[in-house]
Design a protein around this nucleic acid. Structure first.
Lengths: 335, 335
DNA sequence: TTCATTTGCGTAATCGTTTACATTTTATCA
DNA sequence: TGATAAAATGTAAACGATTACGCAAATGAA
């Protein structure tokens, strides 16, 4: 284990003081071009790498941002994480990506651990307001995709226009001739899902279709099997509907499978929409009509906001909503 | 910004010295149960969180392991990363997951950055031997999935039995009646792909089928479109074959689409196998016969090995191969 | 030339831990 | 009871950076 040289040693080798090395490293000025040259060549020659623990200790901040994600196996979230990482790397930040598996206890532990690492900032996909719980006080924090339930507009938040997305998906079903439209979601606790439900209601109201509570179905996980089961049961029980709006693509795929298994042709006798536009929507037959979230815009924006926060800038706006796009495919319109 | 208390302050509040606090925190012994109780309650009461930068500075090691992954949007890799993260979290390590997008310059930068963070160890999915390049000297390192090309058995490495996997997939095609079997892969530079090719050759040899170089096709990326194109072209050119062994599932899906587009029925007239067993293989119709990698065993093992390395233990064995399983599905056998 | 500024650089305190060593307290035993 | 060993606790020096402060030399104005 060849330990790397410290600033002090480099200083001796370069014939200057540690202060000068530090100044050159951080380009703080207060040195001549001549000295700078001397220092730079010593740094290069001896391959000096500053000790970031010492730096963090002194400056009370590491060039790292923590990212809390509930389920990295979900393609939508892994896309978010991927883009976040790229955005931060370009700005000189490393990211610690932490998957919480939708477990709040694991999430809390992880946030603790990240804080202990004195990360510069936190990106959260979470329904918990840590600032309020005074866990993350003082650490710049921005939320994306999910808004904490107990938010009082104190947080920085970026989301898709879920209401609009829910509205567009439902309207597509109506336009394609559906008159009884079911709604499937996992827990309605997440703000994004609530928005989608609101959009669903808006579209129905606009078309003067009454909202039938028996057509709202809940599911434990956003998994194909869960949707399959709940749709199969509803159909068996004799509940009738000719369209299903699902709050995720996996639910839509499960719903399609169940409909077909029960003898309904999709899209002829049953039309279905998803949400997120993951790759499976075009791999699966019929391809799934879905709402595309502009993750690229979302992640770039939230990264920018967090960095502004870290740099101590005041934000004009704390709350952002990004437009979505409807992708019309076979599950509503056929090939 | 409410700064959290330091050990010194806690010490005063608890009426003991910093050394005692430290001893209790690290359970180093040398304190009475009574004192321990006093310390613990103060820690809890004032919500003390140790500063990890200071700790790292002193101990010269952060409880973090870096993970380099080439493409986190690839479900196989995201599964690997997910499991790695869980395994390390359980052992008290946080992970810094860094996606390199298959770019070697980005990869190098990232490794540099991780080292500067004084991570305790590195998990690499990479074809580059950083120890040899003396970039990562002294940092415990383990490779998974890809073996560095210039390896001289100096590294710790865990992989699937790719040769066996390639053999099983090809043999399945032969058993199902194929006589001219194509092979599609991306760059053959990666050790895993080379192994799969070797398995393919082994199976053909065993069945006395000559290896026809015109049946080996290369593709730029492991993307559906790339496979679609190369298979379509081959078919147009009049190259004949009745089976395709693909080195990833996405290639298999693309190959299937191309075959069907060219008028071949899968599996009746064209049989296809994939590799990795991602979820799309069962979503896609026909479902894809594929080789399942035991990622759970791989990640648990590599995490254990790296931690042993970090703890300074000697490893009995440096090189591990994990068995794979063939998942027989519709693309070779029909429904 | 003289005094005031500015510039360049070094000294040393500091961040919050760990830990070797010193010191005090308690336990053990003849 | 004393002497001695063992256990519990405290003191202070690191770790490697940043930075306030001070001093010397260079520059400029008069």
């Amino acid at each position: 284990m060849k330990k790397s040289l410290s600033m002090k040693e480099i200083a001796e080798l370069a014939g200057v003081s540690v202060a000068t090395i530090s100044r050159v490293m951080n380009q703080n000025g207060g040195y001549s071009t001549e000295t700078e040259e001397k220092v730079r060549s010593a740094i290069k020659k001896y391959n000096y790498v500053p000790n970031s623990a010492a730096k963090s200790l002194r400056t009370n901040r590491a060039p790292i941002v923590g990212i809390i994600v509930p389920d990295i196996l979900n393609e939508y979230y892994s896309r978010l994480v991927f883009e976040l990482q790229m955005a931060f790397f370009e700005e000189g930040y490393l990211t610690m990506i932490c998957n919480t598996n939708e477990s709040s206890t694991l999430e809390e532990k992880t946030v603790q651990a990240l804080i202990a690492q004195s990360v510069s900032g936190l990106i959260l996909i979470s329904g918990v307001n840590y600032q309020k719980r005074s866990l993350a006080t003082g650490i710049p924090t921005a939320y994306i995709d999910r808004r904490p339930q107990d938010d009082e507009r104190g947080i920085v938040y970026v989301e898709s226009d879920n209401v609009q997305g829910g509205y567009m998906a439902t309207k597509e079903l109506i336009e394609c001739g559906c008159t009884r439209i079911a709604f499937i979601t996992d827990m309605l606790g997440e703000s994004s899902k609530i928005g989608r439900f609101k959009g669903y209601c808006n579209a129905l109201n606009e078309a003067d279709i009454p909202i039938d509570p028996s057509l709202t179905m809940r599911v434990q996980n956003v998994a194909i099997d869960d949707a399959f089961q709940v749709v199969s049961e509803a159909l068996e029980k004799g509940i009738t509907f000719d369209g299903i709006m699902c709050t995720t693509d996996m639910l839509a795929i499960g719903a399609t499978m169940a409909s077909e298994a029960a003898g309904y042709k999709v899209p002829e006798e049953m039309k279905i929409t998803g949400f997120d536009d993951v790759s499976a929507t075009t791999l699966f037959r019929p391809s799934i009509t879905t709402v595309h979230q502009n993750t690229d815009a979302m992640t770039k924006l939230v990264a920018e906001l967090l960095i502004d926060l870290i740099d101590g800038k005041k934000l004009k706006e704390q709350d952002y909503t990004i437009p979505v796009t409807l992708m019309k495919r076979a599950s509503t319109r056929g090939e």
